[in-house]
Design a protein around this nucleic acid. Structure first.
Lengths: 295, 295
DNA sequence: CGTCCATAATACCTTCAGGGTATTACAGCC
DNA sequence: GGCTGTAATACCCTGAAGGTATTATGGACG
């Protein structure tokens, strides 16, 4: 009658690997078991999920539909476990995620004061997991930097802030009062080009057909390390530049760069007095960037 | 590792019945099995879900949290099954729910014309299931009458329409050009008083402390049957009155009655080109009530 | 106060799903 | 034609989920 979440997890692994053997390794089970479980799932759902040719494994339309649905479903199940565990621990906690550079202390302090029975936690997120932490229940609300995948979320805009370029201190542009985005056309950007469409559209290295590889960087610190080492430049929100200041990296205001939008996000299916009261506090708060250390 | 949806369903049954025996009956399993499964669930989650005194069964805080999460989770699982089954059937269908009185044909026709590869279905909903059909995947979008439980949904307002009173044709007020809500203070209303707060706040029968029972009515037709039989009166949106017209029931415009709001709703976690294109069509459509047959 | 009743838990059995290993079937490649 | 990579098949074993019979226990009641 009910789908089995274990089988769903198996299915997602196979759908992502498109290879039974590798998926089985990832799941730490034997390959024949996985084959059998997927077969069973297909029977239960009365739907073929994969086309297995001897040489390749592909998703059917039904499989694609299931993959779309299975991921949020599994995330919701994880979130449920987390929330129950927390409720059982007795101590009611409320966890707030936030992206680097954002200063949440004042809002958090006011929220904690208004809810003294609550244990209020904060979690620093990254680009990769700022949405994930919401879906899997690690945080109750998260202060995110747009753009994000908004599916299943409620967003409340908080403020906008300019974005600036971070270059090595000995860079030819370092020290200029401001630059145009076109000045960066022949630079190497240490992040996903889509995050800065203004640069992507003019970048020489992308037009040359030989884009340089972008290392996978999960934190601002790592990114700055690469900038300082002269491996490239980076575009970050003003507050990030202010917060993660280091002498061997210079900050440059850039004209014609759309500001970064910051919003509060939470799961649309959840309805909680606490979430709404936090949202109201956050909306009312003064998010003006603190005076930068650069000044 | 993963929670078992079967156990979750069992849990919900027990949480709703607060009685292992009755819950077991409802689930068509033996009571000891149910006791054991709930125990197992409690162990897996490392959380006590019920306090079992010899005489009563109560939810713990963790149990309440789980109940809140389990219901949408199970609904999402159902919806997944439905959508996969549909995708497997090959014929891509798009299903639109709508409440009584609403005329969706023109929008549906235009949507079907714009998506000829699609099989477009319509489903009439009721007050009870207009939200449920969205959560369990029976429809892709639904045209709902507010107020509804908006958790997990995206709403797009479409239009508003006045509400009118339906009374027996031989009622003392029948035939009046219009009445005030106060004229109905000593009438019996055949619906949930909270649906018409203007009446609830003045109703004599509610102030007397001896409210008459409201029969459980699932369709407009049943409601009108009761009205015609003289068992009470009913407040409905104008378009419902126009559509379900019968000679032994009269329609009365009522002053000081907030209009009924109609909106398009869909599941917040879903992101589909089709849903958005339907939403745009629906927003652009002319929803002005058709000329009533009463005229 | 003893008996009965209602209710959940315990004991014990049976079946079958899910895990494992060994092996086979089959397509492509050298 | 043998070799390799890949999924499926065959077969076994364990444990979870279902069932029935019974027990423990607190409340109701004569």
């Amino acid at each position: 009658m009910d789908v089995d979440l274990r089988k769903l997890r198996y299915f997602v692994a196979v759908a992502e690997e498109l290879h039974f053997g590798r998926a089985a390794d990832r799941l730490h089970i034997a390959q024949p078991v996985l084959s059998r479980q997927i077969r069973a799932l297909e029977n239960e759902l009365r739907a073929q999920l994969f086309v297995r040719t001897k040489r390749a494994t592909e998703l059917t339309p039904a499989g694609r539909q299931l993959l779309d649905d299975a991921r949020p479903l599994l995330a919701a199940a994880d979130a449920t476990r987390r929330r129950v565990a927390q409720a059982a621990r007795g101590a009611k906690t409320f966890t707030i995620g936030f992206m680097p550079g954002l200063t949440v202390t004042s809002v958090v302090r006011r929220f904690a004061a208004a809810n003294p029975e609550l244990e209020v936690e904060v979690v620093r997120t990254t680009w990769d997991d700022q949405v994930e932490v919401l879906h899997d229940g690690r945080v109750d609300v998260s202060i995110v930097r747009l753009p994000i995948d908004q599916a299943g979320l409620v967003l409340r805009p908080l403020f906008e802030e300019p974005r600036v370029a971070m270059v090595p201190a000995d860079h030819r542009l370092a020290g200029k009062p401001s630059i145009d985005i076109t000045d960066l056309a022949d630079e190497h950007l240490l992040q996903d080009p889509d995050a800065v469409p203004e640069w992507r559209d003019i970048a020489l290295e992308l037009r040359s057909g030989h884009p340089r590889a972008v290392p996978v960087l999960h934190s601002v610190e790592e990114k700055l390390e690469h900038v300082a080492a002269g491996n490239g430049i980076s575009i970050v929100p003003q507050s990030v530049a202010d917060f993660y200041h280091r002498p061997d990296v210079s900050t440059l205001p850039v004209n014609d760069l759309a500001p970064n939008k910051v919003a509060l996000a939470w799961i649309a299916t959840r309805r909680s007095r606490l979430i709404h009261s936090f949202a109201d506090l956050a909306t009312a708060a003064d998010w003006a960037p603190r005076p930068g250390r650069r000044a």
